Computed example of a mutant assay.
Amino acid sequence: MKQNLSLLGATGSIGLQTLDVARRLDLKVCALAANRNVSLLENQIREFKPQLVAVFDLDAAKKLRLAVADTPVRVVQGMEGLCEAASFAPADVVCNAVVGMVGLLPTLAAVRAGKDVALANKETLVAGGALVMAEAKARGVKILPVDSEHSAVFQCLQGCPEKKAVKRIILTASGGPCFGMTKEELAQVTPEQALKHPNWNMGSKVTIDSATLMNKGLEVMEACWLFGLPGEQVDVVVHRESIVHSMVEYQDHSVIAQLGVPDMRIPIQYALTWPQRMASSVEQLDLIKCGTLTFREPDMETFTCLRACRRALERGGLAPAAANGANEEAVRLFLEHRISLPRLGELVTQAMEHQPDVKQIASVDDILNADAAAREFVLRAAN
């Protein structure tokens, strides 16, 4: 089990649940990082007593320095600060729970510093999988999945004798708050309605991604990098109950699944304690109370983000980075009531197709430039 934790995204949904796990496992939190929530960060500093805290927002960093001036903590700022927290020498594991492309550079910083990474930031591998996994392999660093679906696959693969024994991965999707809607109905959905997820407690961006099935498209691309499989060996099924978190089918057609209540503390804890399993405060699964478990095919004609991600995966190169960047910008516009959910999917598709073909990604700058170009495309097309 890891003993010294650096947590990026400490004030978000995954960050708060990670600290709950750390509290119960009595882990040392040596570094924290967040965007701008000064009051919550101050409380976390006083409880966990980290040596280093990174604040992305510069004004918030100044306020935090004043608020914790009576403590020995060192406060750093901006992207440079995030990367310092990610590569902080005392840490033996970095949990990256920030949301969006902002997580890419800190992940690379952690890997290059030889830190194992408990990864909840899917954009890291969607946009920069080739670079991140190559760096991790070269340095012998473990990338441990925190997403419930990828953690489930990781757990189902523990007894796998060899890679060729795997026939396919089956990722489950809750379907989100808009499941079963037509395009016409989807066009009437407000941000407030889309943020009401039936099963999971997540941040706003991830919840909107669940409503559009973009989240599942990103997870398909992430799974390909994590488990070294082509896209045609990663399937998606809608499972409304969110009890089966994902499955692995083997060549003999045996299917192994990981089940549990929908609580992110289960995959978070497993990433931090692997290969051990520890007692948990999470509610025990009662299959009798669950009753029926259902599985359905996703509607990619209505929820076009999943189809766009499949297409980006086929194209490869910088197309996944473009799809991800376009989505981040389009989600912001939707939350500001400036576009509809169907328009969000259209913009992601158009920005991804607008990205020129690239055979090989030369550097992280290529990824960041594709991301920026996709965001600019969305802003122009949405006006």
Rank of each mutant, 00 (worst) to 15 (best):
Q3V: 15
L7C: 09
T11L: 03
I14K: 02
G15L: 07
V21P: 10
L27W: 00
K28C: 11
A31N: 06
A34P: 04
R36F: 06
P50Y: 01
F56L: 11
D59L: 15
D59T: 14
R65L: 10
P72K: 08
E80A: 13
A86C: 05
A86G: 04
S87V: 07
P90I: 03
D92S: 10
C95G: 06
V99W: 06
A110Y: 00
K122H: 10
E123V: 14
E123W: 04
L125D: 02
A127G: 12
A130E: 15
L131M: 08
L144C: 05
V153R: 06
V153E: 06
L157S: 00
Q158V: 13
A165E: 11
V166S: 07
T172L: 05
S174N: 05
G180N: 07
M181Y: 10
M181Q: 15
P191A: 09
E192R: 08
A194R: 04
P198M: 08
N201L: 04
K205Q: 12
V206A: 11
D209I: 13
S210F: 01
L213A: 03
L218A: 09
M221D: 11
E222K: 05
V236Y: 02
V236I: 15
V237I: 13
V237C: 09
H239Y: 00
R240W: 02
H245S: 01
M247Y: 10
M247L: 11
V255Q: 10
A257L: 06
Q258S: 11
P262I: 06
R265D: 06
I266L: 10
Q276V: 14
A279C: 07
Q284A: 14
L285P: 09
I288S: 03
K289A: 15
L293H: 08
L293T: 05
F295I: 10
F295C: 10
F295E: 04
D299E: 13
E301R: 14
C309M: 09
A312Q: 04
R315A: 13
A322D: 07
A323Y: 01
N324F: 03
V331N: 06
R332V: 13
L333K: 09
L333N: 07
T349M: 10
H354Y: 12
P356W: 01
K359N: 09
Q360C: 07
I367L: 09
A370M: 02
A372R: 15
V378L: 02
V378Q: 00
